[in-house]
Computed example of a mutant assay.
Amino acid sequence: MLNLPVIFTVLALIAYLTGFLYLLKQFLDKTTTNPFLVWSSLLTGLILHGLILSIDMVTPMGIDYDVFNLISFTSGLMLLLSIIFSMYRPVIILNLIATPVAMLGMVIGASLSTPNHVIREQGVGIDIHIILSLAAYAVLFMATIHAILIWFQNRELKKKQKKRIWVNLLPSLQTMESLLFDLIFVGFLLLTVALGFGFFTIDDFFGQHLAHKTVFSVISWFIYGGLLLGHWKLGWRGKKAIQFTLLGFFLLALGFIGSKFVLEIILMKT
């Protein structure tokens, strides 16, 4: 009997790898990349990635929110968002980062996920809250990686290094900073809506081990909101933007990923 998840995983890896290697070759050869070839192969991989997730996550009892399924889902979502952003900004090269992340996340989810992490008696509102939260984490994680890359660029420019690896590899600093605030703005909106759904759909924050996640998420919301306001009113950018971005995501990761890992893997609770 054919094992569909395994077949889909192999095909998705082939599609991802095809797009990644083509993009890498064009980048190393410093030749013009055909966006259609990149996007078509990566989107084919994403469709197969989505089929794997539908098999692993959608059960008769509800959606299985196993931590490894969530890693797979978030990594695929990161690549999708990376493709979308690269369609209107000249940053297609950043898919060289998002594609390996999607490949690794998919393999982790397919090989390590276990059943029976379905949230009992959940409604559509909770599912929307969780999906929006994951989307926010994916966008803000991309913003964090982006902020680190900008830090490397800034460091090379300020030290006036002769070998400017990151300056030469990446798009211009202005383009990178513009995309950073695009990412933060989208992530902030998603986090705002996710928190709104959470407050109106979750009845027992303490009984569902959600109090600490909510506290960290709300603090992160204020940090990202403060950064966007500072950028709009005071022109914040550069080092300040990097620091706020890293701090905001650290708190999000501490509240969500860290607590979920402790509950499911260490304490064996769902």
Rank of each mutant, 00 (worst) to 15 (best):
V67C: 04
I130K: 02
G226W: 05
V58D: 06
L173P: 05
L46G: 14
I7H: 08
I97W: 00
G125C: 03
Y137P: 00
E177V: 00
A98T: 13
E121S: 04
S54H: 01
A110W: 10
F68T: 03
V10I: 15
G255F: 13
I242Y: 05
G255P: 11
G226E: 05
H146F: 08
T114I: 09
L254K: 00
M106H: 12
T33N: 07
S172G: 07
S178V: 06
K269H: 14
Q122L: 11
D127G: 04
K233Y: 13
P35G: 07
L46R: 07
L48N: 11
F185W: 09
A136M: 07
N154P: 03
M176F: 13
F222Q: 10
M142D: 08
N116R: 10
L94A: 09
L48W: 03
A110R: 14
F216T: 09
L104S: 06
L173Y: 12
A143M: 06
T192H: 00
L2T: 15
G235L: 07
F216L: 15
V124N: 14
V58I: 15
E177T: 01
T144L: 04
L140W: 11
A138R: 08
F36Y: 08
K25H: 09
T192W: 02
G105R: 14
K25E: 07
I126P: 03
L11I: 06
G230A: 14
V167F: 01
I257H: 01
G50R: 02
I257K: 03
T18A: 05
P5Y: 00
K269W: 12
L149M: 12
I128W: 13
V167Q: 15
G235W: 10
F216N: 00
M1H: 10
A102I: 02
K163G: 09
V10W: 07
S40M: 07
E264Y: 09
L104D: 04
L227I: 07
L267S: 06
G123P: 03
F216V: 07
M106W: 02
G235Y: 10
T114G: 11
G123H: 03
L96I: 05
L79V: 05
I92K: 13
D203R: 11
L80W: 02
N95S: 03
M61C: 01
T31F: 02
I71K: 07
I257L: 08
V215P: 04
L180Y: 06
Q174D: 14
D182S: 10
S86N: 06
F216E: 00
F222W: 09
L234S: 04
F256S: 04
L81Q: 12
L229S: 10
L227V: 06
L234I: 05
W151H: 04
S220Y: 11
L134E: 03
R237E: 08
S75G: 02
L51K: 12
L112G: 10
N154I: 11
L11C: 01
L179M: 12
M61G: 15
A138G: 11
G62I: 02
D182P: 10
A194H: 02
L17P: 08
F222A: 14
H117P: 06
N95R: 13
L134G: 05
L190T: 01
W151D: 01
V6T: 13
L254Y: 15
I145M: 10
R120L: 10
L28Q: 12
I266Q: 11
